[in-house]
Amino acid sequence: MNYSWLNTRRWFLGRRKVASPFDALLNAELPASAASFDAVEFVSLDIETTGLDAATADMLSVGWVLVREGRVDLRTAETFIVRPSGGVGDSASVHGLTDTVVGTGLDWGIALDRIVRVLTGRVLLVHHAGLDKVLLDRMCLQRFGYRLPVPVVDTLALEHRRLKRHHHLENNSSLRLADLRDEYGLPRYSAHDCLVDAIATAELLLAIVAKRRSTTLDDLLG
């Protein structure tokens, strides 16, 4: 999505009557697209879902951490379990979350409110927006009537573009988070914890940015 179009759309939506905290998100000022990386606050976020199809999957848990002033700030780390509308289904084997555990989770609407609040005035950072962003859009549409109008930086898309530009993209190139981290010499983390994945994604962004001479928000957006 084009950044000025995003701003236009937010302005347009901001004039309508929308529920809190979505209204604050719409009215918050976004960082300028020319802002340097250090000047922008990112919410590195990862979601675990009941399935791989963003159109039908439900959120099971979410974790995030802020990247600000060019650093991952663990003081801001947050994670919680979400109670989905349906059961846990197949993914229990992947995440180790059973219906019982999930049953103690937050109502999905409250969880979404928290996500919206932390995203207010910030940029969403995910690895593979195709899943997480689509899911968040769907949830926002259902709760607030609109998709989530925030700028998105996708480390997977960034690496995909870089490899393609340098003609390094081969059929067997892996863009999985763990493999990309290996390439950047980042340590291995245990998989399948959304907070750890959020931290891992944030560190990957630092590494990607460090490799470039200078980086603006615009360089990172899709």
Binding site: G70, R71, V72, D73, L74, R75, A77, I199, A202, E203, L206, A207, V209, A210, K211
Partner: peptide, 11 residues
């Protein structure tokens, strides 16, 4: 300690 850390990457 763990919650009072920030992480930086140096080239």
């Amino acid at each position: 300690c763990a919650k009072n850390i920030d992480i930086a990457y140096y080239r």
